[in-house]
Amino acid sequence: MPTFFEKRQLVTPGDLLAEGDYIAGENTYKENDKIYASRIGLVDYEDRKVNVVALRAFYIPRVGDTVIGTVVEVGFNGWTVDINSPYLALLRASDVLSRPFRPQKNDLSKVLDVGDLVIAKIIAYDRAHNPQLTVGEPGLGKITRGQVVKITPTKIPRVIGRKGSMISMIKQETGCHIILGHNGVILITGKRLEDEQLAMMAIHKIDEESHTSGLTDRVTQMIKNEKAKRKGGS
């Protein structure tokens, strides 16, 4: 039962990854006992399972995910939210307004208007229906300040790092509060704009170089250099 690539090697769609008694994991498929890649990414063999960590992908909703979205439409009894995915999400008015509401009386656009950003959680989704959101948990709801960064959704785990090492380092170094949406949208709120910009730079760097090793160290170095430069300049 041979495998045809080394761990963390770059593969393209259609590459034969393994033959024989293997299980097709993420971004792979199995045909006649052969496992092929279905996306461009890095291979990972763990025991019997073959995975590809995709370098290019889009967000597919999953129940329980926290996402950051933009309101694109105000309806009669809820909002339509763009969550950076092939499917638009629905946020129901009864979920946002805890009191009973009447569509004739309450003006929903006063609560959330087109263009507003929300942090929400996916409570229901299947193939036949668009995902449904909730904001009824602490930490969720309308975003009032901060910077929003979009990255490839599959790279969110890389931004978190091993046991959260990367994200806690960025938080500590920049002093910003960072919320990661599973859909690849990241909210950064800091005391000063410069801090927020520094965190944004770090996240963009991770997005571009997610497939290289030793990234945490390089990002730390970059932040330190940038800080030193600013101190020298001012």
């Binding site: 769609p13 259609g14 971004n27 045909e31 996306r39 370098l55 290019r56 992908a57």
Partner: peptide
């Protein structure tokens, strides 16, 4: 492939 759409080959 660049758009990240899963494909056989």
């Amino acid at each position: 492939a660049d758009a990240g759409i899963p494909m056989r080959d």
